[in-house]
C-alpha cells in the first residue's frame, strides 16, 4: 500500500464520449491529488467536465458512449482502472461515496427512505435488517432530520428538497467512507438551505475525517470550505491553486472572470454585474489554440494559434495560459 497521506491521485485522466457529432473530450488530461482529510473544490461552468471527472473516479461513466481512454486513477494505492467491476462495486458506496446535484431525482421515488438507506449497510457492512434499520435511524439523526424514527419509513416525496439532500448525505456517509464526492450538492436548493447543507458537510467532514471533493460552479460555495481549488474549462484544468491564493492572486484570465462575476453586496448599485462574454466552446470541435481565447479579454494572436502551456507559478499553483505569470503579477 502506497499511502504517504494521499487518498486519491488522478493522473492525466482522459474520458471521451463518442457522439454523432464526433468525439467529445469531456475530460482531457486532468491531474490532481487529494491528501487524506483534505477538501478539494472543482469549479467550472456547465459542461466543463467536472462531473465527468468524478464519475470516472467511481467508474460510473455510461459506456458506451463514454470511455476512460487514458490516465491513472489511484485510490489509496489501488489502481481503480485496473479493477474488475465487482471490485469497483466494493469501493462504491463504502470507501468512496457520492452526493448528487438534484436531491429531488436522486432518490428512488418508489422505495421507502429506510429501504434505500438500509441496502447500503446491508451490502457493505453485512448488517442484518434490524442493525441496518437502527443504523439508518442513527444516520438520519446525524444529518439533522427531526423525528428520524418516524420519518425513516417515509417516501422521498414526503421530504422537502433540503431534507432529501440530508437523506442523500446520510446515505453517502452510512459506511463511513474515506472519500466523499459532492457533485453540486447545493445547486438545486434555495439559498438558506444551501448554507445549512454546506455547514452540515463541513461539520461531518471534521467529525469523521473524510476527504471531500466538492464540485460546484459557485465560487462562493468553495471559498469557505476547501483547501485547494481546481478550475476546469473545456475538459482541462485551467488553474490549480490553494484556495486562499486562488482568490487573492489568480493566474488565469478565466479564473479572474469567474471571480469578477461573483455578486458582491458591497458593489456599487446600478452597475451591472460582470459576466464572461460568449458561451463555453463545443468540446467536440475545439480550436487549435486556447479553448478560452474567443471569450478572453486578454487574448492575443498567439492564444488563437497555439495551445497554451501549463505554467508553474509555484509548487502548488499552476495555470494553463500563455500569460499566466503576467496575470499572476496583476497585469
Amino acid at each position: 500500500m502506497n499511502n504517504n497521506g494521499t487518498i486519491l491521485s488522478v493522473n492525466d485522466l482522459k474520458t471521451y464520449f463518442q457522439t454523432e457529432d464526433g468525439v467529445v473530450k469531456a475530460v482531457d488530461g486532468i491531474t490532481f491529488t487529494l491528501a487524506k482529510g483534505e477538501t478539494l473544490g472543482i469549479v467550472g461552468e456547465s459542461g466543463s467536465g467536472k462531473s465527468v471527472t468524478n464519475l470516472s473516479v467511481m467508474r460510473l461513466i455510461p459506456e458506451p458512449p463514454g470511455k476512460i481512454v487514458g490516465g491513472d486513477i489511484i485510490f489509496d494505492g489501488t489502481d481503480v482502472r485496473a479493477l474488475s467491476i465487482d471490485e469497483v462495486r466494493k469501493i462504491r458506496g463504502k470507501r468512496i461515496a457520492m452526493i448528487f446535484q438534484d436531491p429531488m431525482t436522486s432518490l428512488n421515488p418508489f422505495l421507502k427512505i429506510s429501504t434505500q438507506l438500509m441496502e447500503v449497510t446491508q451490502l457493505h457492512l453485512g448488517h442484518t435488517k434490524q442493525q441496518a434499520y437502527e443504523h439508518a435511524i442513527k444516520m438520519l439523526e446525524t444529518v439533522g432530520i427531526p423525528d428520524a424514527k418516524s420519518r425513516v419509513d417515509g417516501y422521498p416525496h414526503e421530504f422537502s428538497g433540503g431534507m432529501r439532500q440530508r437523506v442523500m448525505i446520510a446515505m453517502a456517509l452510512s459506511c463511513d467512507p474515506e472519500l466523499l464526492i459532492a457533485d453540486e450538492p447545493t445547486t438545486a436548493l434555495d439559498v438558506t438551505i444551501q448554507a445549512q447543507i454546506l455547514e452540515l458537510i463541513k461539520d461531518l467532514r471534521e467529525r469523521m475525517g473524510t476527504s471531500v471533493i466538492l464540485i460546484t460552479h459557485d465560487l462562493g460555495v468553495v471559498a469557505g470550505m476547501t483547501d485547494k481549488i481546481i478550475v476546469m474549462y473545456a475538459g482541462k484544468v485551467f488553474e490549480q491553486a490553494p484556495t486562499k491564493e486562488l482568490f487573492e492572486r489568480p493566474a488565469n484570465p478565466y479564473t479572474k472572470g469567474l471571480l469578477k462575476s461573483v455578486p458582491d453586496p458591497a458593489h456599487e448599485q446600478g452597475e451591472p454585474l460582470y459576466q464572461i462574454p460568449g458561451l463555453p466552446p463545443d468540446v467536440a470541435h475545439l480550436p487549435p489554440g486556447c479553448p478560452f481565447a474567443e471569450r478572453c479579454d486578454r487574448a492575443e494572436d498567439i492564444c488563437r494559434s497555439e495551445y497554451p502551456p501549463f505554467v508553474e507559478i509555484n509548487e502548488n499553483h499552476h495555470s494553463l495560459c500563455h500569460f499566466a505569470k503576467e496575470v499572476y503579477d496583476g497585469n
Binding site: 460510473l60 465487482d86 462495486r89 462504491r92 436522486s106 418508489f110 422505495l111 447500503v120 451490502l123
Partner: peptide
C-alpha cells in the same frame, strides 16, 4: 434516471439495480 445512478454509486450490482430500483418505474 438519476436515482439509478445513485443506486449504482452505492455499489449495488446490476441485477439489484434493475430489479429493485428500475423495474417499478
Amino acid at each position: 434516471s438519476d436515482y439509478i445512478r445513485t443506486a449504482r454509486a452505492k455499489g449495488l450490482d446490476e441485477k439489484t439495480v434493475l430489479l429493485k430500483h428500475g423495474l417499478r418505474g
